[in-house]
Amino acid sequence: MVLNNIEKLIEKYLNAETSLQEEAQLKAYFNSDDVAPQFEAYKPMFQYFSESKKEQYTKDVPLKSKKTSLYPWISVAAVAVLILGLVVPNFMGPTEKEKQEAQLVYNQTMEAFSLISIGMHEGKSQLTNLALVGENIEEGVQQASKLGTFSTITNKILKNKSH
């Protein structure tokens, strides 16, 4: 009966279905001297588990890693650069000479834009005059066509009177 029970427990153990109490029964059986010959193959496995429980690691485990990472330092450097980029321009603003040079460049630019604007207005008035000349030429062509018609009619009248 005991062998039948052990066989069922081994089968459950290999299928990972045993409880802690059943595993304790198997360990006790395989650590005893009267193990059945058909179960001798399992004896070293259970004895190993019992022996490995007793083993202890005796060396000191270092808690600090000797290898340092650069990532924290990179983030610190990035924050420092960002702060310097935001703070330094406020303290080290443009000097009085730089402000005067900037004002001079601004005034020269505005003067150049003013000259361009005047030139554009002159060009616009010339285009307006050109448009008026074009209209006058068109009106003259119409008048000339009327004059041509008048001349033709006059010639017909004069030819009719002379006959």
Score class of each variant (00 low, 15 high):
2 V>L: 15
2 V>R: 14
2 V>W: 07
3 L>W: 03
4 N>E: 07
9 L>K: 03
9 L>A: 03
9 L>T: 03
11 E>C: 05
14 L>D: 02
15 N>W: 10
15 N>H: 12
16 A>F: 13
17 E>C: 11
17 E>Y: 05
18 T>Y: 04
22 E>A: 02
24 A>Y: 06
25 Q>V: 15
26 L>Q: 01
27 K>L: 15
29 Y>P: 01
30 F>T: 03
34 D>I: 11
37 P>L: 03
38 Q>T: 10
39 F>Y: 10
40 E>N: 11
45 M>V: 10
46 F>L: 07
48 Y>V: 02
49 F>W: 13
51 E>C: 03
51 E>L: 09
52 S>R: 13
53 K>Y: 11
56 Q>N: 13
57 Y>S: 09
58 T>N: 12
59 K>G: 12
61 V>A: 12
62 P>L: 10
64 K>F: 02
67 K>W: 06
68 T>F: 00
68 T>C: 01
70 L>A: 08
73 W>Y: 12
73 W>D: 06
74 I>T: 06
75 S>Q: 12
75 S>Y: 06
76 V>H: 04
77 A>M: 02
82 L>G: 11
83 I>A: 15
84 L>T: 11
84 L>H: 00
87 V>C: 08
87 V>G: 06
87 V>P: 04
88 V>A: 14
88 V>L: 13
90 N>P: 02
90 N>W: 03
91 F>A: 13
94 P>Q: 13
94 P>F: 00
95 T>I: 05
96 E>V: 15
97 K>G: 09
99 K>L: 06
103 Q>R: 14
104 L>Y: 01
105 V>N: 11
108 Q>V: 05
109 T>P: 00
109 T>E: 02
109 T>Y: 13
110 M>W: 05
110 M>C: 08
111 E>W: 06
116 I>V: 08
117 S>E: 14
117 S>I: 05
117 S>G: 08
122 E>A: 15
123 G>Y: 04
124 K>F: 12
124 K>I: 05
124 K>A: 15
124 K>S: 15
125 S>C: 06
125 S>W: 10
126 Q>A: 13
126 Q>H: 14
127 L>D: 02
128 T>P: 01
130 L>I: 11
130 L>K: 07
131 A>I: 07
132 L>D: 11
132 L>C: 08
133 V>E: 03
134 G>Y: 03
135 E>Y: 02
136 N>M: 07
141 V>G: 01
141 V>N: 01
141 V>A: 04
142 Q>V: 07
142 Q>L: 07
144 A>S: 04
145 S>V: 05
145 S>P: 00
147 L>M: 08
150 F>K: 14
152 T>I: 15
153 I>T: 14
161 K>R: 11
163 H>Y: 12
